[in-house]
Amino acid sequence: MAETKRIPILETKKLGITFGGLVAVSDFNIQIYPGELVGLIGPNGAGKTTVFNLLTGVYKPTEGSVLLNGEVLNGKKTHQFVNAGIARTFQNIRLFRQMTVLENVLAAFTKDISYNMFDALFRTPKFWKTEKALHEKALDLLSIFHLEDKADSIASSLPYGQQRKLEITRALATNMKLLLLDEPAAGMNPTETAELLECINSIRNRFGIAILLIEHDMSLVMNICERIQVIDYGVTIAEGLPEEIAKNPKVIAAYLGE
Protein backbone atom coordinates (compact mmCIF):
# COMPACT_ATOMS: atom_id res chain seq x y z
CA MET A 1 0.00 0.00 0.00
CA ALA A 2 1.41 3.33 -0.98
CA GLU A 3 1.41 5.24 2.27
CA THR A 4 2.77 8.30 0.57
CA LYS A 5 0.16 10.96 -0.04
CA ARG A 6 -2.98 8.90 0.06
CA ILE A 7 -5.83 11.37 -0.02
CA PRO A 8 -8.85 10.54 2.11
CA ILE A 9 -12.23 10.61 0.33
CA LEU A 10 -13.89 11.83 3.46
CA GLU A 11 -12.35 14.07 6.02
CA THR A 12 -13.97 16.00 8.84
CA LYS A 13 -12.34 18.78 10.77
CA LYS A 14 -13.51 19.56 14.31
CA LEU A 15 -17.06 18.70 13.32
CA GLY A 16 -19.63 19.46 16.01
CA ILE A 17 -23.27 20.26 16.64
CA THR A 18 -25.19 21.61 19.59
CA PHE A 19 -28.94 21.25 20.05
CA GLY A 20 -30.00 24.08 22.35
CA GLY A 21 -27.71 23.46 25.31
CA LEU A 22 -26.94 19.83 24.45
CA VAL A 23 -23.60 19.18 22.81
CA ALA A 24 -24.49 16.12 20.74
CA VAL A 25 -21.18 15.84 18.87
CA SER A 26 -18.02 17.83 19.30
CA ASP A 27 -14.53 17.91 17.83
CA PHE A 28 -15.21 14.93 15.58
CA ASN A 29 -12.30 14.17 13.27
CA ILE A 30 -12.18 11.24 10.90
CA GLN A 31 -10.42 10.34 7.68
CA ILE A 32 -11.67 7.61 5.43
CA TYR A 33 -9.56 6.38 2.53
CA PRO A 34 -10.83 4.78 -0.68
CA GLY A 35 -11.91 1.18 -0.24
CA GLU A 36 -11.76 1.23 3.55
CA LEU A 37 -14.31 -0.23 5.94
CA VAL A 38 -14.40 1.84 9.10
CA GLY A 39 -16.56 1.18 12.15
CA LEU A 40 -18.17 3.86 14.28
CA ILE A 41 -19.27 2.58 17.65
CA GLY A 42 -20.42 3.93 20.95
CA PRO A 43 -23.11 3.39 23.59
CA ASN A 44 -26.75 4.42 23.12
CA GLY A 45 -27.18 8.13 22.56
CA ALA A 46 -23.46 8.62 21.98
CA GLY A 47 -24.10 10.67 18.85
CA LYS A 48 -23.40 8.15 16.07
CA THR A 49 -26.54 8.81 14.06
CA THR A 50 -26.00 12.52 14.58
CA VAL A 51 -22.58 12.15 12.95
CA PHE A 52 -24.28 10.52 9.94
CA ASN A 53 -26.77 13.34 9.79
CA LEU A 54 -23.90 15.81 9.77
CA LEU A 55 -22.10 13.86 7.05
CA THR A 56 -25.18 13.94 4.81
CA GLY A 57 -26.35 17.49 5.35
CA VAL A 58 -29.49 16.52 7.24
CA TYR A 59 -28.14 18.62 10.13
CA LYS A 60 -26.04 21.71 9.63
CA PRO A 61 -22.91 21.60 11.82
CA THR A 62 -22.55 24.38 14.38
CA GLU A 63 -18.77 24.06 14.08
CA GLY A 64 -16.18 22.43 11.86
CA SER A 65 -16.43 21.15 8.31
CA VAL A 66 -16.97 18.11 6.11
CA LEU A 67 -14.68 17.58 3.12
CA LEU A 68 -15.30 15.08 0.35
CA ASN A 69 -12.34 14.61 -1.95
CA GLY A 70 -11.01 17.88 -0.63
CA GLU A 71 -14.21 19.74 -1.46
CA VAL A 72 -15.90 21.51 1.44
CA LEU A 73 -19.56 20.51 1.66
CA ASN A 74 -20.66 22.84 4.46
CA GLY A 75 -23.99 24.56 3.89
CA LYS A 76 -24.97 22.26 1.05
CA LYS A 77 -28.25 20.39 0.94
CA THR A 78 -28.61 16.65 1.41
CA HIS A 79 -29.06 15.90 -2.28
CA GLN A 80 -25.86 17.82 -3.02
CA PHE A 81 -24.00 15.62 -0.55
CA VAL A 82 -25.35 12.65 -2.48
CA ASN A 83 -24.27 14.18 -5.77
CA ALA A 84 -20.81 14.62 -4.31
CA GLY A 85 -20.72 10.91 -3.51
CA ILE A 86 -22.03 10.18 0.00
CA ALA A 87 -25.02 7.86 0.33
CA ARG A 88 -26.55 6.39 3.46
CA THR A 89 -29.09 4.11 5.03
CA PHE A 90 -31.17 4.91 8.08
CA GLN A 91 -31.30 3.34 11.50
CA ASN A 92 -35.09 3.14 11.31
CA ILE A 93 -35.63 2.01 7.73
CA ARG A 94 -36.88 4.72 5.41
CA LEU A 95 -38.14 3.27 2.16
CA PHE A 96 -40.54 4.73 -0.38
CA ARG A 97 -43.20 2.57 1.14
CA GLN A 98 -45.95 2.83 -1.44
CA MET A 99 -43.64 2.34 -4.40
CA THR A 100 -42.48 -0.97 -5.80
CA VAL A 101 -39.08 -2.43 -5.02
CA LEU A 102 -37.91 -1.61 -8.53
CA GLU A 103 -39.20 1.97 -8.34
CA ASN A 104 -37.36 2.48 -5.06
CA VAL A 105 -34.11 1.82 -6.86
CA LEU A 106 -35.13 3.74 -10.00
CA ALA A 107 -35.97 6.80 -7.90
CA ALA A 108 -32.38 6.90 -6.71
CA PHE A 109 -31.22 7.20 -10.33
CA THR A 110 -33.15 10.46 -10.74
CA LYS A 111 -30.14 12.75 -10.45
CA ASP A 112 -28.32 10.89 -13.22
CA ILE A 113 -31.20 10.90 -15.71
CA SER A 114 -30.59 13.47 -18.40
CA TYR A 115 -33.86 13.43 -20.32
CA ASN A 116 -36.13 16.44 -19.79
CA MET A 117 -39.85 17.22 -19.83
CA PHE A 118 -39.93 17.25 -23.62
CA ASP A 119 -38.50 13.74 -23.84
CA ALA A 120 -40.91 12.53 -21.19
CA LEU A 121 -43.98 14.10 -22.84
CA PHE A 122 -43.21 12.93 -26.35
CA ARG A 123 -41.61 9.63 -25.36
CA THR A 124 -38.57 10.28 -27.52
CA PRO A 125 -36.09 7.49 -28.32
CA LYS A 126 -33.83 9.03 -25.69
CA PHE A 127 -36.54 8.53 -23.09
CA TRP A 128 -37.02 4.87 -23.94
CA LYS A 129 -33.31 4.20 -24.15
CA THR A 130 -32.64 5.76 -20.76
CA GLU A 131 -35.56 4.04 -19.08
CA LYS A 132 -34.65 0.66 -20.52
CA ALA A 133 -31.00 0.94 -19.54
CA LEU A 134 -31.88 2.02 -16.00
CA HIS A 135 -34.44 -0.72 -15.70
CA GLU A 136 -31.77 -3.28 -16.43
CA LYS A 137 -29.26 -1.59 -14.16
CA ALA A 138 -31.80 -1.56 -11.33
CA LEU A 139 -32.55 -5.27 -11.74
CA ASP A 140 -28.84 -5.93 -11.76
CA LEU A 141 -28.36 -4.05 -8.49
CA LEU A 142 -31.35 -5.84 -6.97
CA SER A 143 -29.78 -9.18 -7.81
CA ILE A 144 -26.89 -8.47 -5.41
CA PHE A 145 -29.28 -9.05 -2.51
CA HIS A 146 -31.43 -11.54 -4.44
CA LEU A 147 -34.33 -9.11 -4.59
CA GLU A 148 -34.92 -9.26 -8.35
CA ASP A 149 -37.90 -11.60 -7.95
CA LYS A 150 -39.53 -9.04 -5.71
CA ALA A 151 -39.07 -6.18 -8.18
CA ASP A 152 -42.79 -5.60 -8.57
CA SER A 153 -43.78 -5.98 -4.92
CA ILE A 154 -44.68 -2.93 -2.89
CA ALA A 155 -41.71 -1.99 -0.70
CA SER A 156 -43.64 -1.98 2.57
CA SER A 157 -44.82 -5.54 1.95
CA LEU A 158 -41.27 -6.94 2.16
CA PRO A 159 -40.15 -8.72 5.31
CA TYR A 160 -37.91 -6.68 7.58
CA GLY A 161 -34.60 -8.20 6.50
CA GLN A 162 -35.31 -7.57 2.84
CA GLN A 163 -36.35 -4.00 3.54
CA ARG A 164 -32.89 -3.39 5.01
CA LYS A 165 -31.32 -4.90 1.92
CA LEU A 166 -33.47 -2.82 -0.38
CA GLU A 167 -32.39 0.31 1.46
CA ILE A 168 -28.75 -0.58 0.87
CA THR A 169 -29.48 -1.31 -2.81
CA ARG A 170 -31.15 2.07 -3.15
CA ALA A 171 -28.10 3.74 -1.64
CA LEU A 172 -25.88 1.87 -4.11
CA ALA A 173 -27.98 3.20 -6.98
CA THR A 174 -26.83 6.74 -6.24
CA ASN A 175 -23.43 5.79 -7.56
CA MET A 176 -21.61 6.88 -4.43
CA LYS A 177 -17.99 6.65 -3.31
CA LEU A 178 -18.73 6.48 0.40
CA LEU A 179 -21.54 4.46 1.89
CA LEU A 180 -22.79 5.16 5.40
CA LEU A 181 -24.62 2.25 7.02
CA ASP A 182 -26.51 2.96 10.23
CA GLU A 183 -26.91 -0.31 12.14
CA PRO A 184 -27.66 -2.42 9.06
CA ALA A 185 -27.85 -5.63 11.12
CA ALA A 186 -30.25 -4.28 13.74
CA GLY A 187 -33.12 -6.69 14.29
CA MET A 188 -31.56 -9.47 12.23
CA ASN A 189 -30.87 -12.99 13.46
CA PRO A 190 -27.28 -14.37 13.37
CA THR A 191 -27.73 -16.15 10.01
CA GLU A 192 -29.20 -13.04 8.39
CA THR A 193 -26.41 -10.96 9.88
CA ALA A 194 -23.73 -13.27 8.51
CA GLU A 195 -25.35 -13.17 5.09
CA LEU A 196 -25.55 -9.39 5.23
CA LEU A 197 -21.86 -9.09 6.09
CA GLU A 198 -20.96 -11.26 3.15
CA CYS A 199 -22.97 -8.98 0.90
CA ILE A 200 -21.37 -5.86 2.35
CA ASN A 201 -17.97 -7.31 1.59
CA SER A 202 -18.93 -8.26 -1.95
CA ILE A 203 -20.32 -4.77 -2.55
CA ARG A 204 -17.06 -3.30 -1.36
CA ASN A 205 -15.06 -5.44 -3.72
CA ARG A 206 -17.35 -4.96 -6.66
CA PHE A 207 -17.76 -1.19 -6.45
CA GLY A 208 -14.49 -0.33 -4.76
CA ILE A 209 -16.26 2.01 -2.35
CA ALA A 210 -15.45 3.02 1.19
CA ILE A 211 -17.90 2.17 3.95
CA LEU A 212 -18.51 3.75 7.32
CA LEU A 213 -20.50 1.41 9.51
CA ILE A 214 -22.38 2.08 12.72
CA GLU A 215 -23.02 -1.05 14.68
CA HIS A 216 -24.04 -1.99 18.18
CA ASP A 217 -22.79 -5.56 18.05
CA MET A 218 -19.15 -5.25 19.11
CA SER A 219 -18.07 -8.69 17.91
CA LEU A 220 -19.46 -7.96 14.45
CA VAL A 221 -17.58 -4.69 14.15
CA MET A 222 -14.39 -6.27 15.45
CA ASN A 223 -14.66 -8.94 12.77
CA ILE A 224 -15.04 -6.90 9.65
CA CYS A 225 -13.82 -3.35 10.24
CA GLU A 226 -10.27 -2.36 9.44
CA ARG A 227 -10.36 0.62 11.75
CA ILE A 228 -12.71 1.64 14.49
CA GLN A 229 -13.58 4.96 16.04
CA VAL A 230 -15.41 5.06 19.36
CA ILE A 231 -17.49 7.98 20.58
CA ASP A 232 -19.22 8.58 23.86
CA TYR A 233 -21.29 11.64 24.74
CA GLY A 234 -20.35 13.04 21.35
CA VAL A 235 -16.62 12.91 22.08
CA THR A 236 -14.15 10.57 20.40
CA ILE A 237 -12.67 8.43 23.16
CA ALA A 238 -10.61 6.05 21.06
CA GLU A 239 -9.63 5.17 17.53
CA GLY A 240 -7.46 2.49 16.00
CA LEU A 241 -7.30 -1.14 14.98
CA PRO A 242 -9.95 -3.53 16.32
CA GLU A 243 -7.48 -5.28 18.65
CA GLU A 244 -6.40 -1.97 20.18
CA ILE A 245 -9.99 -0.91 20.68
CA ALA A 246 -10.96 -4.17 22.36
CA LYS A 247 -8.25 -3.64 24.97
CA ASN A 248 -8.76 0.10 25.46
CA PRO A 249 -9.81 0.73 29.09
CA LYS A 250 -11.80 3.87 28.16
CA VAL A 251 -13.89 1.89 25.68
CA ILE A 252 -14.49 -0.90 28.14
CA ALA A 253 -15.53 1.64 30.76
CA ALA A 254 -17.90 3.38 28.32
CA TYR A 255 -19.54 0.13 27.35
CA LEU A 256 -19.78 -1.38 30.81
CA GLY A 257 -20.63 1.91 32.45
CA GLU A 258 -18.44 3.52 35.06
Binding site: K77, H79, V82, A87, L95, A107, D112, T174
Partner: peptide, 28 residues
Amino acid sequence: MFVRSKYGRAIRAIRDDEIAASASGINT
Protein backbone atom coordinates in the same frame (compact mmCIF):
# COMPACT_ATOMS: atom_id res chain seq x y z
CA MET B 1 -46.50 11.00 -19.25
CA PHE B 2 -45.32 13.17 -16.40
CA VAL B 3 -46.31 10.67 -13.75
CA ARG B 4 -44.79 7.75 -15.62
CA SER B 5 -41.30 9.16 -15.93
CA LYS B 6 -38.49 10.16 -13.63
CA TYR B 7 -40.65 13.10 -12.53
CA GLY B 8 -43.43 10.88 -11.26
CA ARG B 9 -41.00 8.58 -9.49
CA ALA B 10 -39.23 11.49 -7.86
CA ILE B 11 -42.40 13.10 -6.52
CA ARG B 12 -43.85 9.84 -5.25
CA ALA B 13 -40.57 9.24 -3.47
CA ILE B 14 -40.88 12.69 -1.90
CA ARG B 15 -44.45 11.88 -0.83
CA ASP B 16 -43.40 8.61 0.79
CA ASP B 17 -40.36 9.97 2.62
CA GLU B 18 -38.89 13.37 1.96
CA ILE B 19 -35.69 12.79 3.94
CA ALA B 20 -35.02 9.48 2.22
CA ALA B 21 -35.74 11.11 -1.14
CA SER B 22 -33.13 13.79 -0.64
CA ALA B 23 -30.75 11.17 0.75
CA SER B 24 -31.25 9.37 -2.57
CA GLY B 25 -30.05 12.42 -4.46
CA ILE B 26 -33.43 13.88 -5.38
CA ASN B 27 -33.53 17.67 -5.38
CA THR B 28 -36.73 17.81 -3.39
